[in-house]
Structures are given as C-alpha cells and as structure tokens.
Amino acid sequence: MTTVNVNGVDHQVDVDDDMPLLWVVRDVLGMTGTKFGCGAGLCGACTVHIDGEAQFACQTPIASVGTSKVTTIEAMKDSPIGKAVQEAWIDTDVVQCGYCQPGQIMRACAMIAKSPQPTDAEIDEVMYTNLCRCGCYPRIRAAIHKATGAGKVAA
C-alpha cells in the first residue's frame, strides 16, 4: 500500500511502485481532469503540481511522490490563482477542444505563483512544454496576462 496526498486528501493505493502518478489519479482515484497525451513527457497534458511545482504526472512514478502534496486541476477552482486563471481562460475564450487545457492551466498557475506578472519571454520559457493541437497559444498568452494584470491574483 502506498499513501498519496492528492488535493489535501490522503489516499491508500495498492499499486506497483513504478505506476505513474497520472494513472493512479485517473484509473485508481477516478479523477479524470488530468489528461493522458503522450506518456513520454512530451506534451504536458498530464501536468499537475507536486509541492507546488508543475510536473508531468505521466513521468512521475508513484513511489517518488512520497509525502509530497499533489494538486490536480480538480482543486484549482478553490485557489485564488487557479480561480483567476480559470476565469481569465473563460473570458479570453482560450479553449477549443479543451483537452490540453487542464495541463496548460496547471503549468500557468505554477508559473504565476512564482512570478505574479510573467513577461512574454517567461511565458514562452515556461509554457513551451505544453502542446495544444487546436492552436490556442495566442489566447493562452493573453489569458495569462489577463489573469495577472491589474492585481487580479491575490498575493
């Protein structure tokens, strides 16, 4: 049995040590907001926070999580940054198919937590890892600026 803390709740899971966090969250805990895209750390659809850092859940063996706190898209509406980012995403009409957006939002929120008003260069540097096949990039950039401009995000 492994204990994993997801969105503030401890879960006991009976899985192999090498099982990626992505599949623990999706197939064992039944939280499907975190998406499977590539299984190889190449697309960012599975991005979650581990102790506040954006990480690829598909590349994170469950045994490596230990006592770290995992946060997924399901909890983001309850955080000030998450709420501001989600609202900016809606106002900016970022989403199309929407499949990559939980990952995009998780990475954007982790960035904003460290850099409350990221520049375009920072956005390129950080968001580079997350692919969007629908081509929502210009709006992702605009939504990040919207969420972080005019003191929308609580410090």
Binding site: G33, T34, I73, Q86, I90, D91, D93, V95, I105
Partner: peptide
C-alpha cells in the same frame, strides 16, 4: 463566449 469553457477549464468536461 463559448458555452463549453467552464466545464473544460475545470477539468470536469468528459471526453
């Protein structure tokens, strides 16, 4: 505005 955004940005939309 898109009508399907809220569910999608919250990870609640079912694919």
């Amino acid at each position: 505005h898109r009508l399907d955004s809220p569910a999608k940005v919250r990870g609640e939309a079912e694919y």
